[in-house]
Amino acid sequence: MSTDIEAADPTIATGDVVVATDLTKIYGEGDSEVRALDGVTVSFPRGQVTAVMGPSGSGKSTLMHILAGLDRPTGGSVLVDGTELAGLNDQKLTLLRRDKIGFVFQFFNLMPMLTAKENIELPMKIAGSVPDAEWEARLIEATGLGTRLTHKPAELSGGQQQRVAVARALLSRPAVVFGDEPTGNLDSKTSAEVLALLRRAVDEFGQTVIMVTHDASAAAIADRVLFLRDGKIVRDSGRLSASEIFDTIKTLE
């Protein structure tokens, strides 16, 4: 576990955190066969925000699920921080998620009976490890929650809840944070706060973020934007403005 904390340190960060090679995912058989992913090869370098976009059914969610070890590909390989996911059993996958992967969900998924601070610390508690106090303080400062840390999720706004979720994902300094429509359930103002926090996590803390999103303004903060259609990457671009992203999406649909 110490290795990925070191690797997450921006001064040493080099190379690719997540490497996918020739991924295919096929649902069904014969006539009803659906190729959700059709030979996707892609690498994600450390210290970047990558947005994955595409119309419904393009395979973007499937790609993220497979990269995060939540789903298994029909073919191809995934390396997360140097570990090949293929062949890992449930226990090993669980430990990998615990140590190397953070998640931010569309519906926040906070535990309602725990306070904001306790929610942030939950994954570390589950892993039975003690959070780095200094790191935790920096993260909490970055969330801007301040006095609301002792509040339960029900007493927080959507934006505040999602910032708690981001902090939760970052506390263990994972190799990569996956976001599943992290702004999908937020308005534009609170979206901006959450996106700023994700951006800061990469710029200041050297984290790596891969998020699936429909939201062009969310993708506009990314260092890199991937566009998928019919299970294939159709465009792999550097930073784009919201209007450029919007145009690309239109051509895909």
């Binding site: 995060a68 939540l70 669980t94 998620r97 615990r98 140590d99 969900f105 589950i126």
Partner: peptide, 9 residues
């Protein structure tokens, strides 16, 4: 959710 953030079975 607990499983995704690293809770084992």
């Amino acid at each position: 959710m607990l499983r995704t953030i690293g809770a084992s079975r």
